[in-house]
Design a protein around this nucleic acid. Sequence first.
RNA 1: GCGCCGCUAGCUCAAUUGGCAGAGCAACUGACUCUUAAUCAGUAGGUUGAAGGUUCGAUUCCUUCGCGGCGCACCA
Length: 509
Amino acid sequence: MSLDELMRQRREKLAQWRALGIEPYAYRFEPTHHAADLLALGAAVTEAPGETVRVAGRLMAIRGHGKAGFAHLLDGSGRIQLYFRADHLGESFRRYELLDVGDWVGVAGSLFRTRTGEITVRVDAVELLAKALRPLPEKWHGLKDPETRFRQRYADLFMNLEVRETFRRRARLTSAMREFLDARGFLEVETPVLQPLYGGAFARPFVTRHHALDMDLYLRISNELYLKRLIVGGLERVYEFSRDFRNEGMDRSHNPEFTMLEFYQAFADVHEMMDVTEALIAGAVERACGTRQATYQGQILDWTPPWPRISMLDAVSDAVGESVRDLDRARLERVAASRGMAARPGTGAGGLLDELFSVLVQPGLVRPCFVVDYPVELSPLARVKRGHPAVVERFEVFAAGMELSNAFSEQNDPEAQARAFEDQGRRREAGDEEAQQMDHDYVRALEYGMPPTGGVGIGIDRLTMLVCDARSIRDVILFPQLRPEEGRAEIDHEADEETAGRAGRGSAT
RNA sequence: GCGCCGCUAGCUCAAUUGGCAGAGCAACUGACUCUUAAUCAGUAGGUUGAAGGUUCGAUUCCUUCGCGGCGCACCA
């Protein structure tokens, strides 16, 4: 039957409710229990009716038997069976007959156990809370189509209950992190999403337009430089769950907007931040999963500290079978070439090392670990390693082959920071769109003096993937980015018209 | 951006070499007062993602486009 016809039938029932003098979209209902509470209560129930209970939710199945009927009601806690009888409900049995799968109802009744043993509410009274005009997906196979699941996450959430669990886990993970940081004296802060300069990471930004100021603004790719300004201001320990935006490709581990936890601690270096990070993450994983040994795609990831600490120089040297610890560019280029990896022009020794690392080492980093000793040229915001000026005091956390976290002993020498920005500026001029922009105000802040500081960023979406055994970042973002359903051509057309209507500026790219 | 795969009823899926587009569930009608993928009898439901082409005839073959999935590339 066509969707139009199915919806027409439901609208007809809606009219019949109104004909009974009942408003099909109620204003309130007061449940006394959730379904899960009733199942727990019902464990003690035998045959005799117990106290009156009130429960509300969405009808997920109706099984009619003439003058009686069963239904399953789904609420935020789970399912409970309802039993309707004509001789028990009298006149209002008519209400039961007007119910459809998908309707929101509130019922009052008493608990009993059916002949087959299922804890059930014998309904004394039923109220319609909201009529569902649209038919639900099929009861047995459910809603599978990934496109529909992402576009209509509301339907995904009531058809696929494990999806609810994913987002509950995500929330437990972040609240555990907040509690951990709050308990250690960190202050949760909020910094600008709209930034006149973008910095703190290498990425292409989204550009937007402020009409009153007549200027372009960038959606932040990172909040790092703002948090460190707060350290300059003396807040000493700050954190923010930052929605960041990067105008890049999308795949299993990248969504254009994603969530990063960044935290900064005055007087700490990268070594101290490693200890903090592994304690923070291990505790949060334990809270989210109930264990520190979380299964991911068939492998057990053990988050129990301490995690191995691996030097990038050692790891790549081991992988290629000769030492590249001296970061000799000619040697690295030869090693890369021998593995069929063509160095892009302008790539320095550090870039080559990083590429070798990404291909040869990273996929094998299954268990959570720290990678340290990053080449200085890749890290304009970090301090050089004491006694080893070719690398910086930085770590990244990897697990299941995925990068989860990035941290350093923060650069607090304003002149060194200015030189690093200038170096980035030269790369920009050479065509590197992702090179960072000179931020004079940030340098000015450092000129007032920033204490030694350790800073960490953790990719919350990716960590959630690992904790929820999700293969795609789309599974852990409630509304992942998709192209519009109507199709791109139409949208482009509208956008063109709008741009054409504006005075004097094309779109910035 | 490139490659491969997919898009058929509200949902989940079929359809042989190109030959009348089907099933289950959901819906509707009837029977049924402890069912649970309820059961039984019946009914209805389609612009096969869109446009174009080849053909007597296209869900099927070709082209373009849209959306999605996977992989690669880009990307920390």
